[in-house]
Nucleic acid binder design. Structure first.
Length: 692
DNA sequence: ATAGGGTTAG
């Protein structure tokens, strides 16, 4: 080892080794044994008849093999036969069969060999309990099998996959013999257990130990770079993989694309993609995701279309990722094209694809289309994601009753909800202010055990504040050990909603004291609190702090909140000049609070001026005319009211009729006709309405 | 024996 002096930058220790001569030409031709994805057809129309122990059709000889094996007397069954059968069962995805064979083996007093144990550990890693694996670990130590590297490696993977990275690390440190696979396994375990930095540290150590990296090492390190956004190190690894010719391996290039994309360098990702000698479906999928992450949705969709043209059959992954691009920003035409292509390829019946389709249609506002896909999936084939996507779709589109009734159906069918389900359905309870339903969902959350899920806790608090139970929201807030920005924002908005402006201010300060940086939404919450409680100076201070200290550009809602704040306090001219000074063109939501202020403070002259600006912006919205009519009425300007209403009724093409009556010395304006712009009943103020 | 790509939440 002569590289110790340059080891501060790990890559330099790479470059000292140059090209790895022995394994450079055909480094990993044998690694391509990837688990085959089973294609689950979920649509009821094409459902195959149910059969109990399912074996893939091309593996029916496994059944025969098993039969022969079972009929053979134990003394004639070599250990090799046990291992082969166990491996085949594991490969077919039948882990129970594999494990029960192992138990039979032990009962027959047959001692396994390293192959047996790595197979069993693989099964336990994907389905078993930690205690079973730990028991086996104990046995392996006692029997001495632990000294086989392959056995130790399999144990590392087992502990990593069961999220016991400490045990994996402890085992790794204690290993007497380690090979590349040991290092790759522990690095990969660290990465999937959120210890990507540790993985990079391990790589440095590995180089110091003089162990040569292989293609898998490069793939692991690239994943660590992607996780930590360590672009410069990722570039160094790229350089190394060119020198070592690992880059010729499609899997390495795919990881490079992913790394560049996740580090925000989509141009480099594109360069790697274009330079590839042979692109696999994974390469295309990775590149589609890179463009999607970068907001280049059209390019993502184009790439998907090109994929098939260039002879690579898109799989469920490619399709799901392009659907994600369509969800975030594709045109209607793109969505139709992609859906047609999916049907043509025959992937519409894949469960993940169907779920992505539901999500796409729901997020793009066509809940009906989403529901069509949802209904086409056989009820036995629906998974939690399917239900969540549909319920969440209803929630997001303000179809609260549909969201709640679908959740009810899910419960009736005894589909087990998860934390995501809870966050999908809670907004529906919140928007109905239905404390009863909200509490019921809370009960489900308790039963599932969502108390450590931040999303659920925030959604619960939001629901309680909106259902009038601020005290319950506060109790949850106090009990949370970890609070994020959203938790604070929800509780500040809650105080604001219930008129506790002072408490909102205190909470906002407490949040900043914890070094949590407010965003646009939390500023809106605190501004609303100031406006509702008449805290004018404080509101102005927050508005200035938002722009100057936090460098957040105010959105229309912030402006309208400030106008509301000033207008309520009667500082109407100030509000007017505030609007005039805005950097962006104000819309009607900024003007209307001022018009309401004019009504409350009976400033007819300013009201007329403001109203004309609003009429220009939205001439079709009857609400605005009503507002001005009410200003006149409020100020007991009978003639003006009458004249204005006559003007309204003369308006060409107006489908609405307007009238007014006097009750107890006050004018009440009546609007008749169909409502294109459904008014908010909470804001109706002095007007009465007679619809149709 | 080890690895990479996708979907649902605020």
């Amino acid at each position: 080892m002569k590289t110790t002096s340059t080891s501060t930058i790990p890559f330099s220790s790479f470059s000292n080794y140059g090209v790895l001569s022995s394994s450079a030409t055909i480094p990993f031709s044998s690694v391509s044994t990837r688990r085959k994805r089973r294609h689950n057809c979920v649509f009821s129309s094409s459902k195959p008849p149910p059969q109990t122990p399912t074996l893939p059709p091309n593996c029916s000889d496994l059944g025969v093999a098993r039969q022969v094996f079972d009929e053979t007397p134990n003394r004639d069954r070599p250990i090799f036969a046990w291992n082969v059968l166990m491996n085949e069962h594991a490969k077919a995805g039948d882990l129970d069969q594999c494990l029960s064979l192992f138990k039979d083996m032990l009962e027959h007093g047959i001692q396994g060999n390293p192959h047996t144990f790595s197979c069993v550990l693989k099964c336990l890693a994907s389905s078993g309990s930690v205690s079973e694996g730990a028991a086996l670990h104990g046995y392996l130590v006692k029997s001495g099998f632990i000294s086989y590297v392959a056995v130790g490696n399999a144990l590392i993977t087992f502990y990593s996959k069961r999220r016991r990275i400490d045990s994996a690390l402890c085992l790794f440190e204690g290993m007497l013999k380690r090979d590349v696979v040991s290092w790759n396994s522990i690095m990969s375990g660290c990465i999937s257990n959120n210890l990507a930095e540790k993985a990079i540290g391990l790589l440095v150590k590995m180089r110091l130990w003089g162990i040569d990296a292989d293609a898998m090492t490069v793939i692991c390190v690239l994943r660590a770079c992607a996780r930590t956004c360590f672009l410069c190190f990722g570039r160094a690894v790229h350089g190394y993989s060119i020198k070592s010719r690992f880059v010729e391996e499609a899997n390495v290039s795919n990881s490079l694309i992913d790394m560049y994309g996740k580090c925000g360098d989509s141009d480099s990702a594109g360069r790697v993609f274009r330079c590839m000698y042979r692109r696999t479906a994974v390469s295309w999928t990775s590149m589609i995701s890179v463009y999607t992450r970068d907001g280049r949705f059209d390019e993502a969709v184009d790439l998907f279309k090109r994929m098939e043209e260039e002879g690579v059959q898109p799989d469920a992954f490619a399709v799901s990722s392009v659907l994600h691009a369509c969800t975030l920003g594709g045109s209607l035409e793109h969505r139709r094209d992609v859906h047609d292509q999916i049907i043509r390829i025959g992937l519409e019946s894949d469960r993940v694809v169907a779920n992505a389709l539901i999500d796409m249609y729901a997020k793009c506002g066509s809940v009906t289309d989403a529901r069509v896909v949802f209904d086409r999936i056989a009820s036995t084939a629906k998974d939690v994601v399917t239900w969540n996507a549909m319920i969440g779709g209803y929630s997001k589109n303000s179809l609260t009753n549909e969201a709640l009734s679908l959740f009810g159906e899910m419960m009736r069918l005894q589909v087990k909800p998860n934390c995501v389900t809870i966050t999908c359905v809670l907004p529906a309870c919140a928007s109905l202010s239905s404390l009863e339903q909200g509490r019921e969902v809370h009960g489900h959350a308790l039963r599932i055990g969502c108390y450590s899920d931040m999303y659920v806790m925030n959604a619960l608090m939001d629901m309680y504040t909106k259902s009038g139970a601020l005290d319950l929201a506060c109790a949850l807030f106090d009990r949370m050990e970890a609070k994020d920005l959203l938790s604070w924002t929800v509780i500040i908005a809650g105080y604001s909603m219930h008129g506790h402006g002072g408490q909102a201010l205190v909470t906002f300060k407490a949040m900043r004291a914890k070094a949590i940086e407010p965003n646009a939404a939390s500023f809106l919450a605190i501004l609303r609190a100031c406006s509702h409680s008449g805290l004018i100076e404080e509101g102005q201070k927050f508005f200035d702090a938002m722009r100057e200290e936090c460098k957040i550009e105010p959105e229309m809602e912030h402006y309208s909140c400030m106008v509301d704040l000033l207008s309520r306090a009667g500082r109407l001219t100030e509000a007017y000049s505030f609007i005039e000074s805005m950097a962006v063109k104000p819309n009607s939501s900024v003007w209307t609070p001022l018009l309401r202020g004019c009504q409350a403070h009976q400033d007819v002259k300013l009201a007329e001026k403001v109203a004309e600006r609003i009429f220009e912006l939205e001439p079709e919205n009857a609400e605005h005319y009503m507002l001005l009519a009410n200003v006149y009425a409020e100020a007991v300007r009978w003639n003006a009211t009458k004249k204005f209403i006559e003007r309204l009724n003369r308006r060409k093409g107006s489908s609405k009729g307007c009238s007014w009556i006097e009750i107890r010395g006050k004018a009440q304006v009546l609007l008749m006709g169909t409502t294109r712009h459904t008014p908010n009943p909470r804001r109706s103020g002095h007007c009465w309405r007679a619809w149709d």
